[in-house]
Computed example of a mutant assay.
Amino acid sequence: MPIELSFATPVALPAQSGITRLYPSVNLADAFAIGLPSGASDDPDLLARFIFANQPAWIGKLTSLRDVIVARFGLKTARHLATLAHVAKAERLGIFKVYSTSETEVVVGEDDTHLDFRLSILCSAGPEPDSGRALTLSTVVHCHNRLGRVYIFCIAPFHRMVVKASLRRAARIGWPVGA
């Protein structure tokens, strides 16, 4: 079955992703794929930056609300992470630290006292012959304590909405073209 060009479809974590077997145990693991039209870039770094730069406005509002809540628990806020992009020596993609890059995948994430997470942006051939190219956003989360497990339980539905909406919006705007 071809990956739809304008809908984010839940898929299994891609076997070729660097995050699939990263943690010995995970508290959240999901992946969503969307088709890339012919002519679209297959540079995962460019596509990731495009997705993060063009998210729906409601995601920023939801992130601000999240920041107000988690700051009370001493967790990293998006505002704090954004300042790291200006002062940290580590490469960052938006608010996230870049952990690895390859020709087909960028892995970003953060580590905190309550949990560690990684997000993979992977460009690949579709799951079946003649299904075209796909972009898959995968997330894995490893919780360190009860606060992490409660946090993931509360935000998981929002996380999935954010990923799907971000992919849909990028497809609607039009993916950057390949070189």
Rank of each mutant, 00 (worst) to 15 (best):
R92E: 01
L47Q: 00
L13W: 00
A179D: 11
S166K: 02
E128M: 03
V150C: 14
N145E: 11
A29V: 07
V162C: 01
A179W: 01
G126M: 10
S166G: 10
T113N: 15
L62S: 14
N145Y: 04
Y151N: 09
V11P: 06
Y99D: 02
S138D: 05
G74M: 07
A71R: 15
I69L: 14
F7V: 15
R49P: 00
F96Y: 07
F50S: 00
F50D: 00
E4I: 10
L115G: 03
E91S: 13
L84N: 10
L147P: 06
S38R: 14
A48F: 01
I173V: 05
S25R: 15
A88L: 08
V70N: 14
I155Q: 13
H159N: 07
I155N: 07
R149I: 12
P176L: 09
L84I: 12
H144I: 09
G148H: 06
L62N: 10
F32T: 01
K76T: 10
P14C: 11
S100G: 02
M161V: 15
I155A: 11
P127S: 08
A12N: 06
S120V: 02
Y151D: 08
L75S: 14
I173K: 01
L47S: 04
G74F: 08
I152F: 06
P24A: 11
R133K: 15
G132C: 10
P10V: 08
S38M: 11
P14D: 11
E105C: 00
S138T: 04
I152A: 04
L84H: 10
R72W: 05
V150D: 03
A40C: 08
P2K: 08
N145S: 08
E110S: 06
M161P: 10
A171G: 01
K164N: 14
L119R: 02
T63H: 14
K97S: 09
D45M: 14
S102I: 05
T101R: 12
A170F: 00
V26F: 12
A165G: 02
V87M: 12
L36T: 05
I173D: 05
H114T: 06
P14M: 09
M161C: 13
S6T: 13
